[in-house]
C-alpha cells in the first residue's frame, strides 16, 4: 500500500486548530507524540534483541568476540528471551564459579546442559 498524492488541504484540515492558543497547540503536539510513542516504548520494555544481549554480556566483562559467540549460540537454542546475562550468572552461581569462568566454559562448549 502506498499513499496517493494529495493537494495541500491545510486550510480545511486546520479548522479545529485555528482557535487554539499557542500553549494549547504545544500541549496537543506533545500529547499526540506521547500517544504515537507509547506502544513503541511498551514493546521495548518487553522484548530483547541479540544486540541488547551482547551489550549485557559486554557489561558483564566479556569481549566483543566472546559476546557475539555466546549470543549466537544462545539464540540458536532459543534462549534470548530468558536473558543471556541471567543464564550465565545463574550457571556461575550453581557451579560455584565466577561469571567469567561460566561464560568461558560455555564458549569452550561445556556446561550447556547445565543452563536452566
Amino acid at each position: 500500500m502506498r499513499l496517493e498524492p494529495r493537494p495541500d488541504d491545510y486550510e480545511a484540515r486546520r479548522a479545529h486548530l485555528r482557535d487554539l492558543s499557542d500553549d494549547d497547540l504545544h500541549a496537543r503536539f506533545w500529547s499526540l507524540v506521547g500517544e504515537v510513542v507509547a506502544p513503541l516504548v511498551d514493546e521495548a520494555r518487553t522484548h530483547t534483541t541479540p544486540a541488547i544481549e551482547r551489550s549485557v554480556l559486554l557489561r558483564m566483562g566479556f569481549s566483543s568476540v566472546e559476546t557475539k559467540a555466546l549470543v549466537d549460540q544462545m539464540a540458536a537454542r532459543g534462549l534470548l528471551g530468558e536473558g543471556t546475562g541471567r543464564l550465565v550468572l545463574e550457571l556461575a552461581q550453581r557451579q560455584g564459579m565466577t561469571v567469567r569462568e561460566a561464560g568461558v566454559a560455555l564458549l569452550d562448549g561445556r556446561l550447556w546442559e547445565a543452563l536452566s
Partner: peptide, 18 residues
C-alpha cells in the same frame, strides 16, 4: 531478531531498560 522477554527475564547489569 526481536524476541519477547520471558516472565523471569533478567539482565544483571546497570542501565538496562525495561
Amino acid at each position: 531478531t526481536v524476541v519477547a522477554r520471558a516472565p523471569g527475564y533478567g539482565a544483571p547489569v546497570c542501565s538496562h531498560f525495561g
